[in-house]
């Protein structure tokens, strides 16, 4: 019994037999995934394979219809209290940053700590400045998002999530809306975060990043997890035909 508990304790995210439909369209098919505390997972796959949908189910931006999701031991239910509790533990970074354009960088960062976690403003601002320093843009704190470059905006978005002190971070193609010269500055921040032991689920096609930090790479196609392996094996010795095809496509362009 205690053994089981300990094992469960180690699991940050558990997805069990999850199915999801958009109307008649079966978008996620019997997905199973366990993510241990501190584990870094990279998810890849062709467009429309359901990668975004899967990770968005983890913080209930999308609702699944069948199966169970546990985050940090909390079972996902349509109960608003459960959802709020889970969202406090889960940070998310979006492809298009989704910063609040009417608020300064600093206000973007302190809003949720102040209103959701009831942290005093002074304290929230100090924490925010700390994280802005870590993503290397403390000097932009009083600017508005529209005045920053894409790479800077994405780093602010990462800092904004970190300010809530999450246990797991979800990234949905964080670099695919960026100009090539800005991709590195964002990836560097993510690599640093990974080295500090953050649990991460990252949808990305940056295979260099996957090789550097991932503990496991997951390949999705047609709403299913087709293959998962540690990066070395995954890239050098893909088992599934569809994985081979996908890898040959993205590695050859």
């Amino acid at each position: 019994m205690s053994e089981v508990n300990k094992q469960e304790d180690q699991l940050m995210v558990q997805i069990r037999n999850m199915n999801k439909w958009y109307g008649d369209f079966h978008v996620l098919k019997n997905v199973n995934l366990d993510v241990r505390r501190g584990e870094k997972i990279v998810i890849c796959g062709p467009s429309g394979s359901g990668k975004s949908t899967m990770i968005r189910c983890i913080n209930h931006l999308e609702e699944h219809q069948e199966g169970d999701i546990f985050v940090n031991g909390i079972e996902m239910a349509s109960d608003i209290k459960k959802i709020d509790a889970i969202r406090k533990d889960v940070g998310m970074v979006f492809q298009h940053f989704n910063l609040f354009p009417h608020l300064t960088v600093l206000e973007n960062c302190v809003l949720a700590p102040i209103w959701v976690k009831k942290v005093p403003r002074k304290e929230a601002e100090a924490v925010a400045m700390q994280y802005l320093e870590r993503v290397k843009i403390p000097e932009q704190a009083l600017k508005y998002p529209g005045q920053l470059s894409g790479g800077q905006q994405q780093r602010v978005a990462i800092a904004r999530s970190l300010c809530m002190n999450p246990d797991v971070m979800l990234f949905d193609e964080p670099t695919s809306a960026l100009d090539p010269e800005m991709i590195k500055e964002v990836l560097d921040v993510m690599i640093e975060l990974a080295n500090e032991g953050m649990t991460m689920l990252c949808v990305t096609h940056e295979m260099g990043f996957a090789k550097t930090v991932a503990d496991r790479v997951i390949f999705m196609d047609g709403g299913q997890i087709i293959e998962e392996n540690e990066p070395q094996e995954f890239f050098n010795n893909p088992q599934h035909e569809r994985t081979q095809l996908f890898l040959s496509q993205i590695l050859n362009h």
Binding site: H60, R87, F94, H96, N98, L111, A112, V116, R160
Partner: peptide, 14 residues
């Protein structure tokens, strides 16, 4: 944009 709602949701705002 929908992203504004999603960002607010993801941060746990009510």
């Amino acid at each position: 944009p929908k992203g504004q709602y999603e960002a607010a949701d993801a941060l746990g705002l009510g």
